[in-house]
Simulated assay, not measured.
Amino acid sequence: MKTILVVLDGLNYEVAEATMGYLQAECAQGNGQLYQLTCELPSLSRPLYECILTGVTPVKSGVVHNGVNRLSRERSVFHYAREAGLTTAAAAYHWVSELYNRSPWQPARDRHTVDAALPIQYGHFYYDDGYPDSHLFEDAESLRLRHNPDFLLIHPMNIDDAGHKFGLSTPQYRNRARMADGYLSHWMPGWLEAGYQVLVTADHGMNDDRSHGGILPEETSVPLFVFGQAFSLQMDAAPLQTELCGTLCELLGVDHDKPLCPELLARREAE
């Protein structure tokens, strides 16, 4: 099944639960379910992009801080999808391009990617943390309409940016989460109507020191919303961040060797 993964960078679970009215409304109508995840450590961005997309913890992957500037040594959902002949795309921060396409990232070459031979075949990658989320979602929809990807990653940064500037317990941070929810309300109904399975999660949370990286619950507790007919919507499922890659591969119907959370997925009737 075609699948979209939205990673709302830096979104704390409690803020997501309280502010994302559209996503909560879809859940209340029986179209989705919200789960609470604990992110892996350290609770930093590049290590957790790697964790979400490969299922490997930072210490094992070696991507243990944001300055690890090299290609991933692991197999990601992009690699599994491409090996199965599927089409991949991403509208994301440039570290994602560095992990899975080419490193070091060169803006003139890599910012807009069209290359069928790369793990992420089609991409719009940005490098300014203030790059507007509104533009990023439009970039993603452009990729979807132009290239019809089987797997699309959407990764906006403005929630994390607001957290670093103002902190967790601020209207600026909460309102950025509300804005992301608003953008999703604009685009997600069309994705679901087109048959996409949609997951909305975060890499890490945020603290009142305007940072993250440690073990405080507000730094490590993140949301996972799921929408689509492939999901069981079981309230008592307990997915792990390391199980997202394998779960995505199951949704895409591609061979993989990653851990997954079977409780997230609807049981398929035997043929």
Rank of each mutant, 00 (worst) to 15 (best):
K2S: 12
D9Y: 05
D9T: 03
L11E: 09
N12A: 13
E14N: 10
V15R: 10
A16C: 04
A16R: 07
E17I: 04
L23T: 06
C27Q: 13
Q29L: 03
G30A: 11
G32A: 12
L37E: 06
P42I: 06
S43L: 13
P47S: 13
Y49V: 00
Y49N: 11
I52T: 07
V56I: 14
V56P: 07
V64Y: 11
V64M: 01
V64D: 09
H65E: 12
V68T: 08
V68C: 13
V68W: 09
N69D: 15
R70C: 05
R73L: 02
R73T: 14
S76K: 14
S76L: 10
V77W: 10
V77T: 07
A81P: 03
A81Q: 04
R82S: 01
T87P: 09
T87L: 07
T87M: 06
T88D: 07
A90V: 10
A90M: 02
A92F: 01
W95V: 09
S97A: 15
P104L: 11
W105Y: 15
D110R: 00
R111M: 12
T113Y: 05
T113A: 13
D115Y: 03
A117L: 06
P119Q: 07
P119N: 05
Y122W: 14
H124P: 00
H124Y: 13
F125D: 06
F125Y: 15
Y126T: 06
Y127D: 15
D128T: 08
D128N: 14
D128A: 10
D129Q: 06
D129M: 12
Y131A: 05
P132D: 02
P132T: 03
S134C: 01
F137E: 05
A140W: 08
N148T: 08
P149Q: 02
P149I: 04
D150A: 13
F151I: 12
M157S: 05
M157C: 01
D160T: 03
D160A: 13
A162W: 01
F166W: 09
L168I: 07
S169A: 14
T170C: 11
P171V: 11
Y173Q: 05
N175T: 12
A177H: 04
R178E: 11
R178Y: 04
M179Q: 14
Y183N: 02
L184E: 00
W187R: 11
M188K: 03
L192V: 10
E193Q: 13
G195F: 10
G195I: 08
Q197W: 03
V198W: 05
L199Q: 12
V200A: 10
M206V: 04
N207F: 00
D208N: 14
D208Q: 09
S211D: 15
G213L: 03
G214H: 10
P217M: 04
P217T: 10
P217F: 02
P223Y: 03
L224C: 05
F225Y: 13
V226A: 02
F227I: 03
S232L: 05
L233N: 09
L233P: 00
A238M: 00
L240N: 07
L240A: 07
Q241V: 15
Q241P: 00
T242R: 12
E250R: 15
L251A: 06
L251C: 08
G253A: 08
V254C: 07
D255P: 02
K258A: 14
P259T: 03
E263A: 15
L265S: 06
R268F: 00
E269C: 00
